[in-house]
Amino acid sequence: MSCPECFSGHINPSTPTGHVATLHGLDVYVAGPPENTTERKGIVVIIPDAFGWEFVNNRILADHYAQRGGFLVLLPDFMKGTAAPLYMLDSLHAVMKTGTLWDWVVKPYYIFSMLSGFVPFILRHRPGKSYPIVESFFSALRQSEGPSTPIGAAGFCWGGKHTVLLAHGASTTIDSGSGSRSTPLINAGFTGHPSFLQVPGDIEKLVIPVSFALGDLDNVLKAESIPAVRRVVEAKEDEVGGGEVKVYPGAGHGFCVRADATNDEASARRAAEAEEQAISFFQRIFAKVK
């Protein structure tokens, strides 16, 4: 994960329409499918970027998945109240400005501001510490929903690594009238501009289908790594029952979540296309769940 790429972007001006609940020990933002939906198509759990479950962009994304895909969408507080502070977005904008002498005078202040948010976040939420929290939530969710409910994970930036780890085959044992059996925690994964990935090592361990949305200008998962991701995903397609890699020309890190949808038409289009990619993939894989 690099700074500043993971802390750049824009805030969505829209208003979320879901509600907050407590589920399996965590606070959760819940977005439901349209009221006229007769049967939900499955559950999608968003594992967010560094700004966490309260970031309005992540909640708006949950609303879109629910309304457009017909899913129950859950956005848990996997960071337990210690997500990256939103002031880092403004601090990064200030750090990148170089147009005036004043921009250079105040730059050290904003660099210190960035570091004061970045360093604690990384120490608290590196994958070795955070993944057990994520896996525990998914395990409890699978236990409560049973083996026949389609469950997907959608991970962005920080959440992308966790989605891929779940797709390595994390499972739980479910007892039923006919005995117990091991059941995967998720049936499908989607990740946009993931961080922390080891390529190709993390991709080679996939046993659950994952859809990747990658930007060719991403400075975290760089363009030179994309062919290796694609090669492994395509080679494992029959083994895992699906999987895909879509590359978005002109897209940098954060394009799925933190696009400037108000002032940049191209950014808005790429974000919308990534939403459609995720929704279509989940619908396609969920339809196969028995």
Results as ranks from 00 to 15, higher is better:
R68Q: 14
A153D: 07
R59Y: 06
I279T: 10
K80E: 15
S171H: 10
D202A: 07
K205D: 11
L123I: 04
T173A: 13
D49F: 01
Y109V: 14
Q198M: 07
S144F: 09
I203M: 09
V289H: 00
E5V: 01
P184Y: 03
F196T: 13
A170Q: 15
G169T: 05
P147E: 13
R126I: 07
G177L: 12
C256A: 12
L86S: 11
G242I: 03
P132D: 11
P147F: 13
H125R: 08
I151D: 03
V220R: 06
G241W: 01
F138C: 11
E234H: 14
L185N: 04
N12F: 02
A278F: 00
R142H: 08
A251E: 06
S178I: 05
R258T: 02
A31V: 03
Q283K: 10
I174Q: 07
R269M: 10
I60T: 05
L221V: 15
V220W: 01
P150D: 11
E244K: 06
D202F: 04
M88H: 07
G160K: 06
S180V: 00
P227A: 08
L75Q: 00
C6I: 05
K236H: 13
S280I: 03
F212N: 07
G18I: 03
S171R: 03
M114R: 06
H125Y: 08
D49M: 00
S113R: 15
V44S: 13
A66P: 10
L72R: 04
H162N: 08
R40D: 04
Q67K: 11
A271H: 04
A153W: 05
G42W: 01
D218C: 14
R126C: 09
L23C: 11
A84V: 15
E237V: 10
L23E: 14
L72D: 09
S280T: 12
A272R: 07
R231V: 11
I226G: 06
S2R: 09
R230F: 08
T183F: 01
I186S: 00
L74T: 10
L206M: 06
K129D: 11
L89V: 04
A271T: 03
V105H: 07
A272F: 02
K288D: 01
T100P: 05
I60V: 12
V240P: 04
G215Q: 13
M96A: 14
F7Q: 04
V229C: 13
E265M: 01
V56I: 12
G146Q: 08
G32A: 15
G155A: 14
R40E: 05
F7N: 01
I186F: 03
Y248I: 05
T98H: 04
G18W: 02
R269C: 06
I60F: 05
A287M: 05
P85A: 15
Y87M: 04
L92Q: 07
C256V: 10
A268Y: 05
L89S: 06
